[in-house]
Amino acid sequence: MFLEQLSGNLVQGVVLGSVYGMATMGLSLIFGVLKVVNVGHGAFVMVGAFVALFFFNTLGLNPIFAIPAAFAVGIALGLTFYYAAIRKLLHAPELATLLATFSAGVLLEETIKMIFGSEFRGYNWDVGNIDLVFTALPMSKILAALGSVLIAVLLYVWFKRTRAGSAMRSVVEDSQGARVCGINVDGVYAMSFALGIGLTVASGVLLTMFIPVGINPYMGGGYTLKAFVIAVLGGLSSPYGAFFGGLVFGLIENTSYTVFALIPGVEPFALTRFLSFLILLIILLIRPTGIIKAK
């Protein structure tokens, strides 16, 4: 009985974890290329959730179509935000970009609140369940996980095989070196920032598969915190590291939930969250560069 539950949670952990991983790739990409910490990360995730909601409830469309739409919205937001603020702040002290991304998050939250209101909403995309021997999983979650893996693979191929991807890698390794190769470093910054925000907003669509009634303008905060734990697990500046960090985090979250539920008198949900941040603290103390070596 316990083992069955545990293996069920392992599977659910991997499913949730791959979505968490994908939802952190944008954060790591932006940090890796620009050394900017996007404190407003969760608000961009929230925008993606609202794109999904809009597609499903207002347009009556399959949330799968919301993924490319959210990605496009993210690219547009990212470019606007980059040229309006980030670009001018890259050489300023770090606090400047922290404040800018924080305020962008607040701005997005309040804008969405004005348009859609602040109550909790959700949608139910019912595409059936998959029955494994030890657990049943909604098909929508499986699709979200597969979508996440697909996006991660596409990003990897794009990075390794395209000209723009190689320009981006070279800027990550040495921006002055990239410049003397004739690479438009400012252009790469703009592109990376837009791509990072695009991925983040798109991930918001995928995450809605896990929160049936949790869509709200202020839902982002928890994701910002989780994304930081995951990014640190994955080594901060590598999107692939972030993806594997997400898997590890999903597993820990799900497994510990099961284990804590067995202890009488313990509130498993709260304790799971506590454990996540305990992990963050421990990693930062012993291996601040992350535990997973990607590359």
Binding site: R169, S170, E173, D174, G177, R179, V180
Partner: peptide
């Protein structure tokens, strides 16, 4: 002109401190 335009025109700099891509 921006640096990448100048490189395109045949101007090259071997910078102080090398600036190679260490993981390539």
């Amino acid at each position: 002109l921006s640096s990448h335009r100048k490189v395109e025109m045949g101007l090259a700099l071997v910078p102080e401190g090398k600036h190679l891509f260490p993981n390539m």
